[in-house]
Amino acid sequence: MSDLASPAAEAKGPSVATIKIATIVVLLAAWQLIAVSGLLYKGLVPPPLAVASALLTELSGAVLYRDLGITLFTSFSGFVIGSLIALLVGIWLGSSTFFRRAFEPYILALAGTPKIIFLPILFLVFGLGVESKIAKSAMSAFFPVVFSTISGYLQIRLILLRVGDSFHLRWLQKVRMIYLPAMLPSLLVGLRLGLAMSIIGVLSAEIAYSDAGLGYRLMRYSDQFQIPSMYATIIVIFALASLVNAGFNHFQRSRLRYLERPSE
């Protein structure tokens, strides 16, 4: 254990790009070795090329895009509904210490519970169609957004709230002109997490019961033991999650840069 204060200098070792490329190469080689070694049941770990071929087949077929569209539609619809409700509830609880103390413990208690156990209630109330998946997405988005809204509201400077009062702004005007801009940094963090949770929520509901969507597709391939196609679907899902996350990150950074720009 040497020189703890100054971690190994970059100049002495390989560059970040080299490490990334080397890691990918090593992982692919290990994958190939496991696939051809016969250590696992035949077909369980198909070679990377077989998965790449299955991925190409998936990407060139129209059905994948139909399932992708359904998952995205349900995720975003639920996200919008859940976030709007969370925004209203968050502003209400943020603006009142009394109501916050009354209801926040219950919201906190539900937030820490695995939401998947509520799926039977959603299926019973909304049916097995797309509505229950939208409800699941809304439920998943609600909790991160409501907490970030409350937290954001509590960070608004008192003088801004007083300015709104002194101009006799209506509630909606206050939300648009004062609350939302002032809460944005905190709110964006919650929205980003809420969107990720919405997608995961919809996928879990599709796996539990569905006849369309990426979660359904994954389970169908798993049940039919079409392993290369199953791997390909997992890659598509992880790529989708990464793309949405990166897209929201970009949006978050651009909005925060816009807010932080020096005023003229």
């Binding site: 971690p7 190994a8 970059e10 070792g13 390989p14 560059s15 970040v16 490490i19 890691t23």
Partner: peptide
């Protein structure tokens, strides 16, 4: 400890 690996991952 190995900063480049930390940054890469």
């Amino acid at each position: 400890r190995y900063k480049a690996f930390g940054k890469a991952y």
